[in-house]
Amino acid sequence: MTAAAPVAAAGPTRQKNTRRRLLIVFGGVLAALVGFGVLGIVVARPGPVQPPCRPDKPCGTPPNRAPRLVVGTIWHSTLGFEMEYYTRILKVLKNDDRNLSVSLEIPSRPELDLSLWVTVAPAAEATPLQLAQDRISFFRGKTLGFQADANSKHELLSPLVGDVHGIGGSYAGTIDSPQGPGQPLEVLIAAATEGGRSAVVSVATSMSEQESGDSPYPIFSLADTLMNTFRWPGEPLPR
């Protein structure tokens, strides 16, 4: 009885337990299914709408790492200066750590005349004035009657070396050749200092002045082209 009782008693109890177990399993499976469903919905649900770009951040295109375009040859100074020049049309007269001198040489256009000299130095060694005076002495040795050009049309209004304003002016003389006085020479000199460095640039041409147009000596536009590439030490070069 005792044994049977439980057995007898076990009939409906077992059934109840089985049903309960089934219910628990069913409930568990259902809960799991619902859970997975909810999880699926959550996972699959599109996130909150993001603005296409964040304010103040570059947007849309990946960062560009292509190197800068360099066409000519780069002159470097250990003082930190650099400049680009073009051997296709320029003859290099001097190229060392502190100097770059070039002159225009296009065989098909011999009438085009332009020379350019760049000299750099630590500011402790040479001020812009000293560098400019060195250039004046240089031209005095090569020309006759070299002096400041009094013609206001020729004035160098903005003595710039690269982007740095400095001192300078226009000068005139006559080329001293073994055959005697040669052609008139027009010279512009600009010198400046920045960041403990000094630099001077001088340009010269023996070509004739023109009375209208953009400037009295349009050939000097080539000097501007070259100086567009002049960089002072520390001047950031975008990479």
């Binding site: 000519g72 073009y86 023109q210 349009p218 536009s221 080539l222 501007d224 082209t225």
Partner: peptide, 11 residues
């Protein structure tokens, strides 16, 4: 003018 500009243009 064009002569001078030519040199610059060449560069």
């Amino acid at each position: 003018l064009p002569a001078g500009a030519l040199a610059a243009a060449a560069v």
